[in-house]
Simulated assay, not measured.
Amino acid sequence: MSLVTDHYDVTLGKLGARLDVAPTENEANVAVVEHTLPPHTLAAPLHRHSREDEISYVLDGEMTVLADDTLSTVSVGEPVVKGRNVWHTFWNAGDDPLRFLEIIAPGEFSEFFEEVAPLTPLDPSDREAVAEFLRIGERYGFEADLESVPRLCEEHDLQM
């Protein structure tokens, strides 16, 4: 059952997410989500997807990606593939806002953003909200290391 009511435009903490192309709108079952992220901000905890690949294409700003133990910087006009089963996260280390397209294949995971938006920003002391976030993630084959957030923010001088 799809919870997406056509298209959405939500904020998950400081990460903006707007569904531009729903997977139901094409036979390839691909979704396109436009994300925005302010300067010096971590987008998500370390996480991995078991069912989909994500391809990010930077429109404005610069994205730093940590995939496994490799750090890379992605500039305007460049793509980066965040493949399934790879622990990864990303952030905006720069002084300018980051805006990028996220191509999700297959696209069902695009519904995750709309579902978790009411729980964000996620307060680690709110056990009920954390448990619900993890339950939603499990339904999508999404695993998150919530304990990675403080370490990443400290190591890279970020906020979340």
Rank of each mutant, 00 (worst) to 15 (best):
N29S: 11
L37T: 05
E25C: 02
R135I: 08
A44L: 15
L19G: 03
D60K: 15
T36C: 07
R127A: 13
P97I: 06
E138K: 13
D95T: 06
D60P: 11
H7K: 05
R18Q: 04
P45N: 03
T5D: 11
L98M: 10
W87K: 09
V86K: 04
T73I: 15
H88W: 00
F113G: 10
E54H: 08
V32A: 06
V65C: 13
L19N: 01
E27T: 14
A67L: 14
M63E: 01
T89K: 04
E132C: 04
T120R: 09
T70H: 14
N26H: 04
L101R: 05
R99W: 02
A17L: 05
H88M: 01
A131N: 00
N92D: 04
D6F: 14
E115Y: 07
Y140I: 14
P124K: 07
E108Q: 11
L59Y: 04
W91N: 04
E54S: 05
T120S: 10
S50L: 11
R84V: 12
I104V: 15
C153A: 08
E128C: 09
S72F: 11
R99P: 02
T73C: 07
R84F: 12
H88K: 06
E108Y: 12
K14H: 10
Y140M: 12
F90I: 01
A144Q: 02
G107H: 06
G94E: 02
K14V: 04
L158A: 08
A93N: 04
D95S: 09
E102M: 10
R18L: 00
M1W: 01
G13N: 07
A144C: 06
F113S: 11
V33L: 15
G13K: 07
I104G: 06
T36H: 05
I136D: 08
D69Q: 14
M1L: 09
S110D: 07
I136C: 08
E138S: 13
E25Q: 08
E27G: 11
D123G: 10
E108R: 13
A144I: 03
L98G: 02
G94R: 02
L12H: 01
L66G: 08
L37R: 00
S2T: 14
E62I: 04
A44E: 10
L158I: 08
H47P: 07
L98N: 08
P106H: 10
L146T: 02
F113V: 13
D68Y: 09
S125N: 09
T41E: 01
A31E: 05
L122Q: 07
H156G: 02
F113L: 12
A31T: 01
L98C: 12
T5H: 12
Y8T: 08
T70L: 13
E154D: 14
P79T: 12
T41F: 03
L98S: 06
F100I: 01
R151K: 14
E147G: 15
L46R: 15
Y57M: 01
L146G: 06
D126K: 03
V86F: 05
D60Q: 15
E115R: 15
G16L: 04
L152P: 05
S72K: 14
N29W: 07
V58K: 04
F113Y: 15
E62V: 13
R51N: 14
L158H: 05
V86N: 04
A28S: 11
V76E: 15
R135M: 12
I104R: 02
Y140P: 10
S56R: 00
L37A: 03
V149C: 13
F113N: 11
D53M: 02
F133W: 08
L12R: 06
G141H: 13
